[in-house]
Structures are given as structure tokens and as C-alpha cells.
Computed example of a mutant assay.
Amino acid sequence: MDVLVPFAASRPKTRLAGVLGPDERAEFAEEMLYDVCCAVESTGASPMVLSTDPIESAWPVVVDDRPLTDAVNDRIEPPVAVVMADLALATPAALSRLLDADGDVVLAPGLGGGTNALLVRTPEFYVDYHGASIADHRRIATEVGTTTTVDSFRLAVDIDEADDLAEVLLHGDGRAARWLREAGIELETAGGRATVRRSTPR
């Protein structure tokens, strides 16, 4: 099965600017992309990177600088899955739950209302990533066929904010987690909640 992995290559992860500089954010985003593609490949599926700009990759890359909704909709040829490139905690087991689930449309919600991964088996389905996309995708899926929701912590956590980096350090074991540690990003547990701090200057 083909799995599209959308990747924002230009100015990635701007909300991490308080912790990582521009070049660091680009490097970290590429490490997460690598981890996601490896996890997809380990399920037996075939990852294809859908990038906003040309990049070097061990996997096929299609360049499309249009908004995410348009770029994905033009490439939905069922059966096909879409897995976001910032799911640094994704594992082959978690992705297999998505790919093996029954239903015309299988959805993996993200924290905060997004859609972090989905599987499409019907040509009538289309994506709409604006706003709280999981609600829109549930509605569209119900209109065109049967829908299944996969409740997975590892697929629900996408890495956007500085506090999300704590989840990578706590639960990740791939290149993204190693990159953070080598960059001097450490866990900070003061106050009863895990956050991160930088032990070395930029």
C-alpha cells in the first residue's frame, strides 16, 4: 500500500523557534520524517514523501507547494494512507493498527483536533485539513461509507510546540530523540509536568 507522508520543507516547525534555531528546526524535521518513513516501511507499506520543496530522501519524493488539502486530494488513489511527517512517536505496531483496521475510511485523531493519519479505501472520500479537521473527516467519511477511529497515543502526538519535545524524549527511541539529546535538549520536570530546557546554548 502507498502511504503519503506530507512534509513542509520550507520554514518547518516555526512554533519551535523558542527552543531551536531555523537550521536546527529543519534538521529536526528531517529526522522526524526519517523516523516516520522507516516506521511506515517496516509495516510493509511504501512511503512517498509529499514535500513542499525538493529534498534529498531515501524514499520517493513528490514536490507540490500547494496547500496540504489540495496536494493530498490530487493523490488519493485508494487504497492509500496519509501519515504526517511529525509523528515522532509512531511505531510499526501503531501504524499497522491503522493500516489493518476495517472500514472505508480509518482515522487516527491528533491531539487538538487534527487528523494525524488516515487510510482511504473509497474514491468518494476527500480530505479537508482546515481547522479541526478530525470532525470534518468524520463527517465526510460517514457520508461516503463506513468509518473506523484508531485510538493511539503514538499516532495522536504530533510535534508542534516546545512542550511536545518532552514526549519525544520520554517515549521516542528513533533519530529524532537522539538528535534532541545531542542538541542539548533535556527534560525539565519542575512544577509537576514534563517540559524541556536547553543545557547548551545555540
Rank of each mutant, 00 (worst) to 15 (best):
S46V: 14
V19C: 10
L20E: 05
V40Y: 03
S46F: 15
E31M: 12
A45Y: 12
A8M: 01
L50R: 01
A29I: 04
D23V: 10
A45C: 13
R25F: 08
C37K: 03
L20Q: 05
G21P: 00
S10N: 08
M32Q: 14
R11C: 06
V49W: 07
F7E: 07
E30D: 06
G21Y: 05
G18V: 03
E41T: 11
E30P: 00
M48E: 14
V36C: 06
E27W: 12
A29R: 00
V40S: 01
S51M: 09
A9R: 00
E24Q: 11
A8S: 08
E27A: 15
F28P: 00
V36M: 08
S42M: 09
K13I: 05
V36R: 03
G44Y: 13
A39C: 01
E31A: 15
E31D: 15
L33A: 11
G44F: 14
S51Y: 11
C37R: 05
F28E: 07
L16Q: 00
R25Q: 02
A8Q: 04
G21M: 03
L33T: 12
L20C: 11
E31Y: 15
R15E: 01
P22F: 05
M48G: 09
M48Q: 13
S46M: 13
A45E: 04
E27P: 02
A45M: 10
S10D: 05
G21Q: 02
A39I: 09
L33Q: 10
A9E: 03
C37D: 07
P22D: 01
V36G: 07
P12F: 04
E31Q: 15
G18M: 06
M48A: 13
S42V: 02
M32W: 11
E31R: 15
E30H: 12
G18K: 03
E27M: 12
A9P: 00
M48I: 15
L16M: 02
S51V: 14
S10Q: 01
P12A: 07
Y34F: 15
S46P: 08
F7D: 09
K13C: 08
T43F: 12
S42G: 08
L16K: 00
A17G: 07
T14L: 05
E24I: 03
A39S: 03
G21F: 09
C38Q: 06
A45H: 12
T43W: 08
L33D: 10
